[in-house]
């Protein structure tokens, strides 16, 4: 009876997962072996042709490079900036709540809207950033939206502005969870501030920071909204995997080929997630060893 009761609890969730996760996943893999198009109509099995095209497509390789570069740079800067801000805010002072609230605002705004908003700020002619730079004496301010060396940097800058507060929040939670007696013991031992940071603060926050980095990295790997709003889906300097997928499936209407691209992306993301999860587990067990 208990066994059946257990199933009764599990079945709705299982059904939900099968209908909305497993079924689309299987369907997507199957589509990857067809020449199916967005507008429907007849389709044929094409074997591994789509997958072979994915691996031989220079656009795909370029999109992987851009996505990885974007993810590594954006997440690293966000992590560093968020942690530094958290260290600065991890004490009581007047106006702390107000500052924290202000810092959290970008994270709460829709990325697509923010992309359009920053697009205006980055405009080479009438954008506020260049107007300020020009007023400050820079006669030839950088062209954020058209200089190939700056386009990706512009997208990274907006992402950092939006998501550093997320790292700040997680870092604050990590800092708050460190037992005070460890700092007291360090003080008694006359440990330097750098030693305290290196031996207590950083190692004890690391698992939480690692988790935050994993969450942000999986999100950054899907970067779509900001690229669409700032440079468009078809710009060689900023085309990420998501915008390439959009281009293939919606603009070119090649659903079969797009599904093959998506399957390969999925494998990459799963591999990354497994790698980071294992690293986190190792970090946690190392911390536990130190505590013992």
């Amino acid at each position: 009876m208990r066994h059946r009761l257990g199933w009764a609890f599990v079945i709705p969730t299982l059904l939900f997962l099968i209908i909305f996760n497993v079924f689309p996943l299987i369907s997507s893999v199957v589509l990857g072996f067809t020449n199916s198009e967005l507008t429907g109509g007849s389709w044929e099995w094409v074997g591994g042709r789509n997958f072979s095209r994915v691996f031989n497509d220079p656009k795909y390789a370029a999109a992987v490079r851009t996505t990885v570069l974007f993810t590594v740079v954006a997440v690293a800067v966000e992590l560093a900036l968020g942690f530094i801000l958290a260290l600065a805010l991890h004490r009581d002072f007047r106006g702390k709540t107000a500052i924290l609230t202000l810092l959290l605002i970008p994270m709460m705004l829709p990325p697509a809207v923010m992309g359009i908003y920053w697009n205006f700020l980055f405009d080479g002619d009438y954008g506020v950033i260049n107007q300020v730079l020009h007023a400050g004496g820079l006669l030839a301010p950088p062209q954020w939206r058209t200089d190939p060396g700056l386009k990706l940097l512009a997208v990274v800058a907006v992402d950092v502005w939006m998501w550093s507060p997320f790292m700040l929040l997680i870092s604050l939670a990590g800092l708050g969870s460190i037992p005070k007696h460890l700092y007291e013991a360090a003080e008694i031992d006359r440990a330097s501030r750098w030693m305290v940071f290196r031996r207590i603060t950083l190692p004890l926050c690391a698992p939480l920071l690692g988790l935050a980095a994993l969450l942000r990295a999986t999100d950054a790997l899907k970067q779509f909204d900001l690229v669409m709003a700032i440079t468009g889906p078809n710009d060689a300097s900023t085309q990420t995997l998501s915008t390439l997928l959009y281009q293939v499936i919606f603009s070119n209407q090649r659903v079969g080929l797009g599904a093959a691209y998506a399957c390969v992306v999925l494998v990459l993301v799963i591999a990354l997630a497994i790698g980071v999860t294992r690293a986190l587990a190792r970090m946690r067990s190392a911390n536990a060893g130190q505590a013992v």
Binding site: P148, N234, N252
Partner: peptide
């Protein structure tokens, strides 16, 4: 029928040329 793939390719590489 494959006009959009042609267009996307053209726009991308012409863009690269205009970028230097």
């Amino acid at each position: 029928p494959v006009y959009n793939e042609l267009l996307a390719s053209a726009v991308k590489h012409l863009g690269e040329a205009l970028d230097g």
